[in-house]
């Protein structure tokens, strides 16, 4: 696939990542361990939803079939979603949520840094705006992972367990396919192998300060960003997120 089709797919990947992670983070609302965390999580979710509006809005423009960002978010089924598996994983405990966030933020930060200088002006503009927010997301999630990893015996054990659980979902973010290749050729997307090296050094610094051991395995679960095989979790998320639009088609809210 090349040209506009690949660009549309690529924009879905960007927008679906922020949509699904933003949704997951918003599930915390009112249930966080301290009030400041409630506020910070809502902030992160808000940023991600805002980025989703821009990415999926752009995807709709590129597709040129009259679909809006809301149509894309609310009226596609599981197999049409292009987010990585990591972001659809359930929240688990607070430590698991923050570990997922840190791993995604580290990837997201490096990706957006490159996209902000991309050959496509529209993408560069959205990426530059999002990068400011994601810089803060990473600062916060990495500090929390460090604080909890290097906290009590219990918090350390929980953070190591979270890392072990989520590590198999890291590889997919850096596994290139035809879409990534086409976007790289077009001067839009970075080389994912180079991105991985920067991700690794960024994450290794956090894990060192957090006194956590990076898992040995490099095995990667895949199938999210291609849409070939999502986890079972995504369907349940969509039943909530899309419920009103599905139950009352055509209604204006």
């Amino acid at each position: 696939m090349g040209g506009q089709g690949a660009l549309f797919e690529y924009l879905l990947r960007l927008g679906d990542n922020t949509l699904i992670l933003g949704h997951r983070v918003s599930e915390w609302c009112g249930h966080a361990p301290v009030l400041e965390e409630d506020i910070a999580l809502a902030n992160t979710a808000l940023d991600l939803i805002g980025q989703t509006q821009m990415w999926l809005g752009l995807a709709g423009e590129v597709e040129a079939d009259g679909r809006t960002a809301d149509d894309l978010a609310m009226l596609r089924d599981v197999w049409d979603f292009r987010n990585v598996l990591l972001v659809e994983q359930p929240n688990g405990n607070f430590g698991q949520t923050m570990m997922r966030q840190m791993l995604f933020d580290a990837f997201h930060f490096e990706l957006l840094s490159d996209l902000a200088g991309a050959g496509d002006d529209r993408i560069a503009a959205v990426a530059a705006k999002a990068l400011k927010e994601v810089t803060y997301h990473f600062d916060r999630s990495s500090e929390t992972v460090i604080g909890l990893g290097d906290g009590t015996e219990e918090s350390h054990a929980r953070m190591q367990a979270a890392l072990d659980l989520l590590w198999p979902y890291v590889g997919e973010m850096f596994t290139p396919d035809d879409i990534d290749a086409a976007m790289f050729e077009a001067g839009v997307a970075p080389d994912l192998r180079l991105l991985r090296a920067r991700f690794d050094s960024r994450v290794d610094r956090v894990l060192k300060d957090a006194t956590l051991a990076r898992p040995d395995s490099s095995y990667a679960q895949t199938g999210g960003k291609t849409g070939f095989r999502h986890s079972e979790h995504l369907g349940h998320l969509l039943t909530q997120m899309q419920w009103l639009q599905r139950a009352y088609p055509g209604a204006v809210w």
């Binding site: 949509l19 949704h23 918003s26 599930e27 609302c29 009112g30 249930h31 009030l35 400041e36 409630d38 506020i39 809502a42 902030n43 979710a45 808000l46 939803i49 805002g50 989703t52 509006q53 999926l56 960002a69 809301d70 978010a73 609310m74 909530q240 997120m241 419920w243 009103l244 639009q245 209604a251 809210w253």
Partner: peptide, 28 residues
Amino acid sequence: GNWITRAPTLERKAILLAKVQDEAGHGL
């Protein structure tokens, strides 16, 4: 918060999130 995950549009979801976040801020 019971409806944030079921908000009908992205904009409604963002507005509701911002509102509930304000409530937490008021608590602070």
